[in-house]
């Protein structure tokens, strides 16, 4: 199972990378793409959109099903990945490279509430049973 140690995670299977400038890069985890299967459609949020924590803000769809992506913390969308929208299969190829959007957190302290790799690993294992 691929759960990089340097990332943060949410219980709804998003990964979050804290960049040097304090922005957050968000995608869906390897585990999530594995559950969904072959991706065929990705829709990222518009740049400038203000998001509440847990707000539905992007959609990933596989052949099998549609799945919402949620804002890991409150903040403003500062970038969306157009490349992944035009090649959704990149999420299957490398879920941690195929980021969906970047977020400027409203309150940087919110990041501390996210799961670390060990906690996320536990969550995935518990869901498998």
């Amino acid at each position: 199972m691929s759960i990089p140690a340097d990332l943060k995670y949410t219980p709804s299977h998003e990964w979050v990378r804290v960049e040097a400038d304090g922005t957050l890069t968000v995608g869906i985890t390897h585990h999530a793409q594995e559950l969904l299967g072959d991706m065929v459609f990705v829709e990222s949020p518009a740049t400038g959109r203000a998001l509440a924590k847990g707000e539905e803000c992007a959609v990933v769809e596989s052949v099998k099903a549609a799945s919402d992506v949620y804002a890991p913390v409150a903040g403003e969308v500062v970038a969306a990945n157009g490349e992944v929208e035009s090649s959704p299969e990149s999420v299957n190829q490398d879920a941690y490279a195929a980021w969906l959007f970047k977020l400027k957190p409203a309150n940087p302290a919110d990041i501390d509430a996210l799961l670390d790799a060990a906690a996320y690993q536990k969550l995935v294992e518990s869901e498998a049973h």
Binding site: G37, D38, S62, V63, K64, N92
Partner: peptide
């Protein structure tokens, strides 16, 4: 079995 790998490749 829902798939053995990639559903699209199977298709």
């Amino acid at each position: 079995p829902v798939n053995y790998g990639s559903q699209i490749e199977e298709h």
